[in-house]
Deep mutational scan, measured.
Amino acid sequence: MSIQHFRVALIPFFAAFCLPVFAHPETLVKVKDAEDQLGARVGYIELDLNSGKILESFRPEERFPMMSTFKVLLCGAVLSRVDAGQEQLGRRIHYSQNDLVEYSPVTEKHLTDGMTVRELCSAAITMSDNTAANLLLTTIGGPKELTAFLHNMGDHVTRLDRWEPELNEAIPNDERDTTMPAAMATTLRKLLTGELLTLASRQQLIDWMEADKVAGPLLRSALPAGWFIADKSGAGERGSRGIIAALGPDGKPSRIVVIYTTGSQATMDERNRQIAEIGASLIKHW
């Protein structure tokens, strides 16, 4: 067993022997301040990774656009098919120029040779490549099948209805392509620590998230040296922004954090800054 596999296998073990965790309302004060600064709703939840206990939450059962955070769930569904012998990570998928959609920095470079399922998941999570996500959605049967996968996990809230990039439209009061912070946090925890996926697939999923290259201005910008984070960000229309993450000190994750916002007129930089400040408060009061 590799060191990384050992780390993920012992996530519940280490967490069980940690000192009790206590909620700190100071972080919620910052979440509410972010709402004021952005002029928009902000949803927040913080779960203990081992027990699933909610440590703090704000608007945990209000719907927010998922945006690209759905790509972690998508690759979880792909990995479940791999575990069941219905898919192979090494299978190569070929596609054409007509398949390319807006923001496809990886797939646009491989029109000639195609990409493997493993490479597509890596591109979808680490670079948020939209064509990679659409190609992977095709392998599982489309958005409705991802929703069905989530329902089978016990998540009857999260739903995907459309493809990239239309799913980022974020129309107010439109339930399409949305989740709730509580539902997303619980589902992410199941994917990373539950028995739904094999140990190898859980490790692969967290490795992809740990290698995320496009979430630097968010929670990662607030992390002290030595902290662990595996995350996936999302951005959408109407001032929408979000991030889902597993993080913790001492090089291992111990909490799940989900943050979503929508309806702001603020710039992307300002949305990023507010999420980073929430992260800084979380870490300060850990």
Score class of each variant (00 low, 15 high):
Glu61Trp: 12
Leu49Gly: 06
Val101His: 07
Leu219Lys: 03
Ala77His: 12
Gly251Pro: 09
Gly194Val: 07
Gly154Gln: 09
Arg273Lys: 12
Leu73Gln: 06
Ala148Val: 11
Ile93Val: 13
Glu277Pro: 03
Leu28Trp: 09
Thr178Ala: 05
Glu270Thr: 13
Asp177Pro: 02
Arg241Lys: 07
His151Val: 12
Leu192Pro: 00
Thr187Gly: 08
Met67Gly: 12
Glu195His: 15
Ser80Asn: 15
Leu111His: 12
Pro224Ser: 07
Leu196Asp: 14
Thr179Gln: 02
Glu56Gln: 10
Glu175His: 14
Asp269Tyr: 11
Asn152Phe: 11
Gly142Thr: 05
His24Lys: 15
Ile140His: 04
Met268His: 08
Met127Tyr: 11
Gly43Cys: 03
Ile243Pro: 01
Leu79Gln: 03
Val157Cys: 10
Ser201Lys: 07
Gln204Thr: 11
Gly226Gln: 10
Gln274Val: 13
Gln88Arg: 15
Tyr44Thr: 01
Ser122Gln: 14
Gly248Glu: 05
His94Tyr: 11
Trp286Phe: 09
Gly251Asp: 12
Gly248Ser: 03
Leu218Gly: 04
Gly76Asp: 02
Arg273Ser: 12
Gly90Asp: 14
Asp33His: 12
Arg59Pro: 03
Ile275His: 03
Val106Ala: 11
Arg189Gln: 15
Leu205Glu: 01
Pro253Thr: 09
Arg118Met: 12
Leu197His: 06
Ser221Gln: 14
Asp155Cys: 00
Ala235Asp: 02
Ser254Asp: 14
Pro172Tyr: 10
Leu167Met: 11
Phe58Val: 10
Gln86Trp: 15
Lys30Tyr: 05
Ser57Lys: 11
Thr198His: 11
Tyr260Gly: 03
Val29Asn: 14
Leu79Ala: 04
Tyr95Ile: 10
Ser128Asn: 01
Gly216Leu: 08
Pro143Asn: 05
Leu282Lys: 03
Arg255Ile: 04
Thr158Ile: 03
Asp212Leu: 02
Glu164Ile: 02
Ser233Ile: 00
Leu218Ala: 04
Ala215Asn: 06
Glu46Cys: 05
Pro253Ser: 10
Ile206Ala: 10
Thr112Ala: 15
Asn130Ala: 01
Ser122Phe: 12
Glu164Gly: 01
Asn130Thr: 01
Ile140Ala: 07
Val214Met: 09
Leu167Glu: 02
Ala123Val: 06
Ala200Gln: 13
Met66Ser: 04
Asp83Lys: 05
Met67Trp: 02
Asn130Pro: 01
Ala280Ser: 15
Leu100His: 05
